[in-house]
C-alpha cells in the first residue's frame, strides 16, 4: 500500500464526512470510531477491487459510518424509536441504488462475521515483517509480482512467488503447532 495515497484519501474524506457525522451526534469519540472503522474497511475493500459501484467514494464511507453508528445505537439500545428512514435526511448520497446498499451492508456485516481466531493471530505474529508485508501486498493489495521485485528487493518473479508460498507454509505450520 502507498501510505501517502491513503493519507490523502483520509484528508479529503474526513473533510467530507466530519460535518455530516456531526449532524448525527455530537459525541466526538463515536464519530471518530465509526469513521475510522468505515474508512479502513472501505479502503481495504477498494484495494481488493471490490468497490466498483459509486463514483462518490466519500459518500459511501459516510453512509457506512452512519450505518455503523446506527448499529451501535441499536446494540446499546440507545436508539429510541426513531426509524433509520426518519434519520435518512435529505443528503443525496443516501439515495443509493439497492445493489449499492446491499454491498454496503455486506461490508459492514464483515465486521461482525469475522471472529479472529487466536491461533491464526499468534501464528501471524510469529512471521517476520517481510513475510507479513508480502502477504498483505499479495492478498489485500493485489500488487503485481513485477512491482514487488523492486519494492521488496526480490531477484525475480519466481522468488516472489516462492517466498509467498514459503510464508504461507510457515504460517500454516505455526498455526498447526499452536492449534495442536
Amino acid at each position: 500500500m502507498n501510505p501517502t495515497e491513503f493519507r490523502a484519501f483520509y484528508n479529503d474524506c474526513w473533510k467530507y464526512c466530519k460535518p455530516r457525522l456531526r449532524n448525527l451526534t455530537t459525541n466526538q469519540a463515536d464519530i471518530e470510531d465509526v469513521f475510522a472503522e468505515a474508512i479502513s474497511r472501505f479502503w481495504v475493500n477498494a484495494q481488493q477491487g471490490k468497490i466498483t459501484h459509486a463514483d462518490n467514494h466519500f459518500a459511501l464511507v459516510y453512509v457506512m459510518a452512519k450505518n455503523l453508528w446506527l448499529g451501535e445505537l441499536r446494540k446499546e439500545k440507545r436508539f429510541t424509536g426513531v426509524s433509520i428512514d426518519a434519520r435518512n435526511d435529505s443528503d443525496f448520497e443516501l439515495q443509493l441504488p439497492t445493489d449499492e446498499q446491499d454491498f454496503l451492508s455486506k461490508m459492514i456485516q464483515e465486521k461482525d462475521d469475522y471472529h479472529q481466531e487466536q491461533s491464526i493471530k499468534s501464528a501471524w505474529e510469529k512471521l517476520d515483517t517481510k513475510c507479513r508485508d508480502l502477504l498483505n501486498a499479495t492478498i489485500i493489495y493485489k500488487e503485481r509480482q513485477d512491482e514487488l521485485i523492486e519494492k521488496m528487493n526480490f531477484k525475480n518473479t519466481d522468488t516472489v512467488k516462492a517466498t509467498k508460498y514459503r510464508c504461507l507454509q510457515y504460517l500454516k505450520k505455526f498455526y498447526y503447532e499452536l492449534a495442536a
Binding site: F6, A36, E37, I39, S40, R41, W43, V44, Q48, E110, Y114, Q116, E117, I120, K121, W124, L135, N136, I139, I140, L168, L171, K172, Y175
Partner: peptide, 14 residues
C-alpha cells in the same frame, strides 16, 4: 488466513 489478513489490515488502518 485470508479473512484474518484482511481484518488485521483493517485494524492497522483503523
Amino acid at each position: 488466513i485470508r479473512g484474518f489478513v484482511k481484518e488485521n489490515e483493517v485494524q492497522q488502518l483503523k
